[in-house]
Structure formats: C-alpha cells, structure tokens
Design a protein around this nucleic acid. Structure first.
Lengths: 247, 247
DNA sequence: GAATGTTTTTGATTGTTATTGGTTGTTTTT
DNA sequence: AAAAACAACCAATAACAATCAAAAACATTC
C-alpha cells in the first residue's frame, strides 16, 4: 500500500461519507497512526480536506465567493461526481445510450461494468470508450465541429434501430414548467429519440443547468430521472414532478 | 520480454487500476528493479504517466485522457511525406472519403483546401477534421477498439448513400498479382465499397507495404493510383499495372 | 554465414533520500 | 483526572538515482 493509494482511498472515503476517522483509516489501510496523521496533514496542506480532532472532514467551501478558476474546478469536480454516480448505475448486459457532452464524458473513466454495449453520438466519447475496451457503437452523420457530436438525419435514422436499457443525456436547461431544453434543435431531436427508445432515461445536470430554459425541448421532467450534484433551493417544486438523484 | 512489451503492459495495468507499483511490476514482468525504474522514467518523460514514490499513477483528468492519443497523433501529423502529397491532391468542392489509419491521418494537417466535405470511418480522423473546421461526416457503426475505426453493416449501408470525387485508402499489403489486401474482411469490404463509389481512388502505402499479401482483397492494382515515398527496386513490374505517385 | 566490433539493454552495486512505525511528552476531549 | 488524540523526534526500512560491467541485439566485415 503506497502513499498515493492511501491518499485516494482517504479522498474516496471522504467523498462518500464526508468525514473520515483516523483510527478507522489505520485499520482499513493497515498502517500506523503516524502514517495516517502524516497523510492527513499532507492532504490538508494541499487543500484536499480539513483536519479535525480524530480525523478529517470534507473541504466544503460554502458561501464563499469563488474565483473563476475555483468555479471551473468546482464545476469539473461536480461533473466528476455526477459522472461517477451515473456510471455506478450501469450494470453488466446493459445497452446504454451515452449522449455527447462533457458531463457524460465524466462517466467513462468511472464505468466498472465490463460487459456492456454503449451507443454514442460523441466521437471523443467513442474514442475513450474504445480505450477502455468497451463494446462501442458510434452513430454516423454530420460532425458538429464545435462539440464533436454527431447530429443530423443519418444519426436519427440509425438511432431508430436501437433500443436501450438506459440512456444518459446531457442538457442545457432544466425548468419546472418547460422541462429539459437545449439550444440546437438537431441535438434535441436526437436526445428525444434516444430517450424514447430507452427503458430509463437519466438526465445529467450540474448546478448551472437548473432554472434555465433553452430553445429546443427534449422532454418533460416527468419522463426522466435527473442526476445532479448540488443541493437545490427550490428542490421540492421539482420533486413533485420528477425523481432527483443526488450524486 | 522486450522494452515495448513492458511499456504496453505497464500502460495497460495503469489503465485498469489507475496505479502501478514498482515491485509488483518487477514480479509480473520478471525483470530487475532498475529496468522498471528506467521504464517508468521513460514513460513519465513521454507524458504517459506520473511517477510517485513506489510506482506510478495515471496522468488523467477527464479529457486529459486524450493526451496520450493526441501525442501519438501529433507525432504522425506532418511527419509523413505521403500524407503531404496526398493532401495536395485535394481541391475545393471535393467530396473525399478518408479511410481510417495512421497513413491517411497524416494527410489532415496538410490539407489546404478550405471548402471540402470529408467522409471518414476513423473517429480520430473525424476529431482532427473537426478541429480544422472541415465539413465532416462520420460513418456510424461498431467501433473497432484497437484502431478506432468504424466497421460493420451499418457503415456499409451508410456508405452506399455517398459518392466521392476522391477516396484515400490505407492498406496493409500490395502485391503485383494479388493487388491490395488487408487483414480484416470487414475493413476490406468498407474500403472496397468506398473505392467503388469514388471517381478516383488513391492508395497510400509506405515502403513496408510493398510485396506483402494480407488476407482480404480490396481491389486490383489497375483500379487505383498508389502514393508511396520509397524508391522501389521492382518498380517497373508495378508500373505496368498501375500508376505510382512518388511523394 | 561465421567472426568481429559497436550499440543497446539489462541487472547489480553504490550511496542517498523518502517513508514508515515506534517513542516521547504535550494538548485536547470527555 | 483519565483517555484519547496529537506533534515532534528517531531509527529502521524501503525506494531512489547514479554508475558500471555483463549480456544481448545489432551492424559490419571477411
């Protein structure tokens, strides 16, 4: 058990339970008190956690004004935790639709199931999935140069041939009355079709997507489950209409 | 066990578990501590991993996972004279089929024409073309994990809908009597169809491809033009049958 | 194709540095 | 005040970089 392994174990624990106890870590990591203490000191120094008497807690920077960089980092971390949670829903023999976009991309490195099939319209997604040696099917069609997503009639036609056990969609806006919306109508059409062909649809949305309305409608809130990372203020209005899973 | 074998084993391990330990590698690769240490130092230098005390960890953060691939791609880009020559044949308003593979990939950075459409079965190709803001159409279908090429029935069906002014194909073997051949029959079928749907077909072949015969036939020599970089010894036998363009 | 010299790769050795677990005595919690 | 958690130190150990000679792979010559 080397240093970095302990670090990642500690951070993982922390991410799950929000708090870690030194003596529990001693047992599960099978090392001395000194080592744990040093690890926690080091991780605190790097800003990954805050030490407390008996262990450490998550470094929650609540109502502080965040710098732009911190915000970006937070966003990425948020996406990562959403991705991790979403990936944990995947089980063997699933046939997945994975929408293009950075939020869904965060799922890929977290996928644990080893026998699944993934259909995607993201060419970067396909490449990463191939790296993981996952059974991947790429939708064909016009490449949208900015996002490297496949869109257009061909992709729609292809998608008609497939059925999914689970679909994971990114989204631009979520709103109580307007549902899930996205700026590009072609992308919206693809997302909508993927949703219709899937037994369950999960919409992945970090905090920046809530209470936003974009141009083209994808689906109503009632039809999908939403995975998010942030505690919403007006959560209850949404909960009346849909299932919200907090990562 | 040669160096490259160890490298790929290490990277494979790393990809699976995210972390490798020096002494475990010593055992599983059956070599000395020094060798492992040298390997890790080299792989770190090339940016494939990050060394830590006791081993190495993955170098990854979301899209950073692309970095190893990108490096490989960058290496290919521009360094190849065949790619440069092939790219110079492309003119505005062309509709191109670009086969997957490293040889054709070398074309992309050399493309000068600004209004063209490219259809490709290579997902890395599509990504690079999108970066250059070229009108790109990606064939859909099953992703071949090793080469990141699209193959299978879906891609064949899609390809039937397109016609090209020029097709650029990679190939594994060229032989006077057996013509152009490649190991994978599915890939061969796709190449063949692209060739049949194109006004002109160029086969890109570096010196390692000559006088080789692979399993599945793509086309006869008479049907295509061959772009190569190396001066052949037995050039004249080929020139009786086909056009050879020296880059 | 055997014999030669050259380059590359490898494993062992060296001394150096980083990590670890135990000890001490102090601070915090109950 | 007792128990738990803590920081600071130290010696043992593990991992490290640097170096060198043997071995392997390579190219060259006869």
């Amino acid at each position: 058990m080397i240093t970095e392994e302990r670090y990642s174990f500690i951070l993982e624990q922390l991410n799950e339970s929000g708090i870690v106890k030194a003596n529990e870590l001693m047992v599960s990591l099978n090392c001395s008190e000194s080592t744990i203490r040093r690890d926690l000191a080091q991780l605190e120094k790097s800003g990954a956690l805050v030490r407390i008497h008996g262990g450490a807690k998550k470094n929650y920077q609540l109502d502080k004004e965040m710098s732009y960089n911190e915000k970006t980092i937070k966003n990425i971390q948020g996406k990562n935790s959403i991705g991790k949670y979403a990936a944990s829903l995947i089980i063997n023999n699933d046939v997945i639709y994975m929408d293009a976009g950075t939020t869904t991309m965060a799922m890929i490195s977290n996928i644990k199931a080893d026998y699944i099939t993934v259909v995607t319209n993201g060419i970067l997604h396909a490449s990463l999935l191939a790296d993981k040696n996952i059974n991947t099917i790429q939708l064909g069609g016009k490449v949208k140069n900015t996002t490297k997503a496949i869109i257009g009639a061909t992709s729609i036609e292809e998608l008609k041939n497939y059925r999914f056990t689970k679909a994971f969609l990114g989204i631009n806006g979520i709103d109580v009355s307007y549902g899930c919306t996205t700026p590009d109508p072609e992308e919206a059409a693809l997302k909508k079709l993927a949703h219709e062909h899937s037994a369950v649809t999960y919409v992945l949305a970090d905090e920046s997507k809530w209470d936003k309305v974009s141009f083209a409608k994808v689906c109503r809130l009632e039809e999908v489950k939403i995975i998010t990372d942030s505690p919403l203020k007006n959560l209850k209005y949404y909960q009346e209409k849909t299932t919200i899973l907090e990562a």
